[in-house]
Design a protein around this nucleic acid. Structure first.
Length: 509
RNA sequence: GCCGCGUUCGUCUAGUCUGGUCUAGGACGCCAGGUUUUCAUCCUGGAAAUCAUGGGUUCGAAUCCCAUACGCGGUACCA
């Protein structure tokens, strides 16, 4: 039996889409679970849509996500690290290819596609077409005006003699090669996630296989490559479902065995349309820029369209658990709305599980973008100080970009109306007295005893029964805010000097 | 228009293949209460789906069949 092989085959059109991330993730989970080879191929057959630098970006995102592939295109560094066979790629600077089925970049396989396209013509499964785009467009307009399905009318197949064709070919007239779709046939296949799917070939158009610029269309390239690369499972988005019959016709015409297909449900906007830029972020890098952790993004996206079932109530899964539990046949059929609120929750769960050192390392770049941090005195920018702030904020963060945001008093001087200091019905005198009391308590604590535990214990002791009377003015004097972490925590972060200074100013007020 | 796919709380979903244990379970979000002031965390509880609608099969249907509606996708020399 052939080895199971899956591939991820993105187009270099800019960045890694969050939906593509879900697709690769499933590729990866499936491969790891079943011991399959996981191949990365680049489908750059549309020269108009190519965005320079996107292959490098794609690789970067995949490496960031920790989705390692076994074969295909790699970065120079990766190759140097652990690959033996290297074929230099000329297409994208800095990327190389490794594996016996290369090249893994479609623009470097042009002769292959032409060869098979011509073979199809010879066998009578395809034909040359010299129609100009203008004619095609007019034809489509007419057809849709007559409420017919827009389809090529086979002019070049039926109205052109072999002599005319040869002549045009000799004169190098611009032409394409079209698939001759057999009529009155039912194409049926078993989709791994959808079950039996049927199409009547009468509704499928004579698809262009080879474009006039010599590049193949997706349909030809994907079939040729998947076959030549021994791909056994094609996992892709649902938008490909309607063109699958074309692919199956091609496999048959070429005398090849089709792979298994698994069409994944779409990721949706809140209004249930296909996830789009207009309604939010779609690039994986947008989410990392907002301070979503990769483990959280992966965890979240894995659950969009799949779940482990089996009465499982847990929703936080490590990559290892995902691999262990993943099953392609449990993938859903219906599209899934991308609910950012749930992502926030998952992200906060992962933030809570970080060690303080990890959190500090990940949060620092976000601090460095904040004005309140940039303008803060240097003693409030030390690693030690930041870690204290983060120790307090850890359970309050949904995403790293929020860091320090609601606790700016840790970094800048505060200003507030004196009414803020009063707790409920307390009088001004009471407030002043309790502030004085806390000041006395805090002044007696030595620097080395300035810990969260000590502060809490001593202040609670001083507060006695009437906690609010003591604690509220203290907290307000320290933060200048209605809402904030507890006074013990804030005082601990601020340190003795700064805390006393702020209390002193409150007493003056 | 035509073709295809889909449809369980607002959202992600369990349950559907192998009808009864489902007066439909969990999670997010929301609401309320509690925990050593406020916020957050944590805990407890609550509201929330006549299983898209209609018809059938059956003693019995979220589960099987048919129809309809709605949604989405495709309908390019884009992927």
């Amino acid at each position: 039996m052939n080895k199971t092989r899956v591939r991820f085959a993105p187009s270099p059109t800019g960045y890694l889409h969050i939906g593509s991330l879900r697709t690769v993730l499933y590729d990866y989970l499936f491969a790891k679970k079943s011991g399959a080879d996981f191949i990365l191929r680049v489908e750059d057959t549309d020269r108009k849509r190519y965005v320079p630098g996107s292959v490098e970006k794609l690789i970067e995102s995949l490496e960031w996500a920790g989705l390692k592939w076994d074969e295909g295109i790699f970065t120079q560094k990766e190759i140097a690290d652990d690959r033996a066979t290297v074929t230099e790629s000329v297409s994208y600077p800095g990327t190389f290819e490794a594996g016996e089925y290369g090249p893994y970049v479609q623009s470097e396989r042009l002769e292959l596609y032409r060869k098979y396209a011509e073979e199809l013509v010879e066998k009578g499964h395809a034909y040359y077409c010299f129609c100009m785009p203008e004619r095609l467009e007019e034809l489509r307009n007419q057809q849709s005006a007559a409420k017919q399905a827009p389809m090529y009318d086979r002019y070049c197949l039926t109205d052109l003699s072999q002599e005319e064709i040869n002549k045009k070919l000799k004169e190098e007239c611009p032409h394409v090669i079209r698939l001759k779709v057999p009529k009155d046939e039912i194409i049926e296949f078993e989709d791994v996630v959808r079950g039996k799917v049927k199409f009547n070939t009468n509704t499928t158009d004579d698809q262009v296989l080879l474009k006039s610029d010599g590049f193949p269309t997706y349909h030809l390239a994907v079939v040729v490559d998947d076959h030549l690369m021994n791909i056994t499972h094609v996992i892709r988005g649902e938008e490909w479902l309607p063109s699958t019959p074309k692919h199956i016709i091609l496999y048959k015409a070429l005398g090849w065995e089709p792979p298994k297909f698994a069409h994944l449900p779409l990721l949706l906007n809140p209004d249930k349309t296909k996830l789009s830029k207009r309604q939010g972020d779609v690039a994986v890098e947008d989410y990392t820029a907002k301070g979503y952790l990769k483990e959280a993004i992966i965890n979240f996206v894995a659950l969009l369209g799949w779940n482990p079932g089996d009465g499982e109530t847990q929703e936080i899964f490590s990559m290892e658990e995902l691999i262990e539990k993943f099953d392609l046949s449990r993938v859903h059929k219906a599209g899934a709305v991308f609910d950012i609120k749930k992502l926030d929750w998952i992200n906060s769960e992962y933030i809570k599980r970080l060690s303080l050192d990890e959190l500090h390392e990940k949060a620092l770049p976000f601090f460095e973008k904040k004005d309140f941090y940039i303008n803060a005195p240097t003693e409030r920018k030390t690693d030690e100080y930041l870690k204290k702030v983060l120790a307090i904020e850890q359970e309050r963060l949904a995403k790293l970009s929020e860091v320090g945001e609601s606790n700016r008093f840790f970094f800048q001087d505060i200003d507030y109306a004196k009414e803020l200091l009063k707790w409920k019905e307390s009088s001004e005198e009471d407030t002043k007295a309790s502030l004085q009391k806390t000041k006395d308590v805090l002044e007696k604590i030595s620097d080395s005893d300035w810990t969260r535990e000590n502060l809490q214990n001593l202040l609670m002791e001083a507060a006695g029964e009437k906690r609010g009377d003591l604690l509220w003015p203290l907290r307000a004097s320290l933060t200048g805010e209605q809402k904030s972490p507890s006074p013990f925590e804030v005082a601990w972060v601020l340190g003795k000097d700064e805390s006393l200074k702020r209390i002193g100013r409150a007493i003056e007020k």
